[in-house]
Write a protein that binds this DNA or RNA. Structure first.
Lengths: 253, 253
DNA sequence: CGGACTTTGTGCGCGTGTTCACAAAGGCTT
DNA sequence: AAGCCTTTGTGAACACGCGCACAAAGTCCG
């Protein structure tokens, strides 16, 4: 441990994996705070967050040296430090684009406001929805997107539209100056350099679960590949693609 | 490339990172299929899926050798192979626990059925919701959870409940035999060995976006760390935790 | 005031995932 | 049938993240 200047830490670079866990730690800390806990050890906090304690300590060390050896971390202080690092000490203005089932659910989700996210606008293309009041907001028409973004100072756009509309709406919000997008539409968005996109895809999550579930039940497509090493029925490798032969057979197997 | 037996591929182990991308490829392939495209190169498919082409080829190589050099991949065949690997050639029975805003949105989400996921049950603890018909299903009372799981053969549970209820409901579905859980509640679930849990957390995604957004705007807490190398106002490292001194100052900064 | 005890912060080795770059394979043209 | 062109499949180097294990640092008690 080279003492020296106290800048040994990541100058600017907190690992992405760490950033993704900070919100989890923060939640655990809030929970502790509510229970009146003032101090917590890395071991306890790690358990609450569902991670390894060494990983937690290393994560926190990227923010600075905020623990006390022999004691642990002061909950309130840590809450503040993580909040500041994540940018939660300031307010973020969010616009939700698309007020279908999902958009409504998001508009009513309480987890946003409590974290410094202020849903300031709901927009939709459907005339029959425009004007409706949802969770204290009046739905605006998508034509007003640019002006709403400007007026409200929107910095994060949440796309909860059908897949077909997502890319063009994304282009519009980006053109309007938004540089962070949370995308619920099942499409890969392409955005210019400097714009961040995060994707939430329900169907992909289920598919990943299905993969593991299938594995537990034993091999792909049911039945697995009995004799892998040789003999007939070997894995179709370079079998010459879809002659429609063993392809169809496999379908019916 | 050592020819030999054609088992050089992962015997049973497809990397987790690859599994997470297969659904994305699958979606891109479906899109191509709808447009009547019969053959696609790794370069084209990679672009459509938003990944590097080498990565895509390596991912696909884990499933087998399904391409034709000089040509590319046959779309229909690849769709089938990926579907089979992910276990989408069979039906998966899904139960949604918690019929609030989010649960309703999920119940109405079309992206499930089209991928072999059949929502077979909706459950809630709120008497005033039980009996209601949503998306063709009648909401059952949570007391019936065990019997519903057994009767319908539920293999995947989707938790869309408040945080406080999630763990105990998770315990119940696991006890009832479910081994895959998709959790929307903002808590870390603990489950026994052999049970898979995937988490979708809206607020975490926003917090990660906020972190990057803040960074673009220049440093944490606004203002960044002007002189990092020396002088006063240096990064609080080992400054002795919350003496409440510069902690409070920073809050008001 | 000193020593025992607790807990942090991190060096280090390991495994996983990503990317480059290229030889081999197949199709296509002449 | 021979050679050219395209594209796959993968070896190898590199980057990243994880977790162990431990020294350093601090607390607390006698």
């Amino acid at each position: 441990m080279t003492r020296r200047h106290n800048r040994t830490r990541a100058e600017r670079g907190i690992p992405e994996a760490t950033v993704a866990r900070l919100p989890v730690y923060l939640r655990a800390l809030h929970s502790l705070q509510e229970r009146g806990v003032a101090t917590v050890s890395s071991e306890e906090l790690a358990t609450a967050a569902g991670v390894n304690s060494a990983k937690l300590r290393k994560d926190l060390s990227h923010l600075g040296s905020y623990g006390t050896r022999g004691v642990g971390y002061e909950v309130e202080y840590l809450v503040y430090q993580i909040s500041r690092e994540l940018g939660l000490t300031q307010d973020w203005v969010v616009a939700i684009i698309g007020v279908g089932n999902l958009g409504r659910a998001l508009a009513g989700y309480g987890g946003f406001a409590s974290r410094g996210f202020r849903v300031a606008a709901l927009l939709d293309a459907d005339e029959s929805v425009v004007g409706e009041r949802i969770s204290g907001l009046t739905v605006r028409h998508i034509d007003d997107l640019e002006s709403v973004v400007a007026e409200q100072g929107v910095s994060i756009a949440v796309l909860a539209t059908p897949a077909a509309a997502a890319q063009s709406l994304c282009d519009r919000v980006v053109a309007a100056g938004v540089t962070s997008v949370l995308n619920f539409a099942p499409v890969v968005l392409s955005v210019p350099e400097g714009v961040d996109v995060r994707k939430v895809d329900l169907s992909i999550e289920l598919q990943i679960l299905a993969f593991h579930e299938q594995r537990k039940a034993g091999g792909p497509g049911e039945g697995g590949w009995a004799g892998e090493l040789d003999g007939p029925g070997d894995r179709p490798r370079g079998e010459g693609p879809p002659g429609t032969k063993q392809y169809i057979e496999a379908v019916e197997a």
